[in-house]
Amino acid sequence: MSEHLYKYLRPEAFPTPFCAGCGHGILMNAILRAVDELQLDFNKIVFVSGIGCGAWIPSPHFAADTLHTLHGRPIAYATGVKLFNPDLKVIVISGDGDLAAIGGNHLIHAARRNIELTVICANNSIYGMTGGQVSPTTPKYAKTMTTAKGNPEEPFDLCKLTVACGARYVSRYTVYHIKPLINSIKKAMTTKGFAFVDVVSPCPTQFGRRNKQPTLYEMFNDLKARAIRYETAKGLKKDELTGKIIIGEFNE
């Protein structure tokens, strides 16, 4: 990462605890670039995270106030921080299992209340830390530790969900689409209201290995093949969108 971003890190926490080729490190870089380009005061940001690999992005790597909370609850904690001290910028970074499964209730209600929080979902479609179980965003038919014959369930579209709940800014990018991702995180951080960024972040260790994409590069190729712009997707039928990852801004 660029040297001028080192001031945002706790160097003693590196190397990161993530597996080789984990997309979360790329997201970490993107978030710090967004903070730097916006010239935000790092002392006035509180990073709130839950449990799981995604939750370890801010804690302990960021040299800011970090609140590493219970599984599924970061948005509830963030609500308390933001409401009591609105001068603080409160950014929630957590995984798909944390925000959408166990914490789904807090997600939809914070979006409904339109509280000024930036929620970044490090979405790797799997429970990575616990060993690769199916998550609410695992694609249909994907193999995981708990769906050896393929996932029988449809995944959540977290962007459509949060738009429906009233979020002010909603977008999805993959870590491969790094420049638009950084811009989108910047927009989310400056949104006056609830902002949600769904970041598709590959997990080669727990997801790729079991789905014939054992390296980050192979997973990137898959993301490239499946990604489709929001504007393009609007003109397509439902079955044409099967397996696609819609990227872009969902409510602008």
């Binding site: 990462m1 660029s2 040297e3 590196f14 190397p15 990161t16 993530f18 080789a20 080729g21 984990c22 997309g23 979360h24 490190g25 790329i26 970490m28 870089n29 993107a30 670039r33 870590v175 491969y176 790094i178 420049k179 980050l216």
Partner: peptide, 10 residues
């Protein structure tokens, strides 16, 4: 530099 998952390249 932008995509290194380990933030190891400058």
């Amino acid at each position: 530099e932008l995509l290194c998952p380990d933030l190891a390249i400058t």
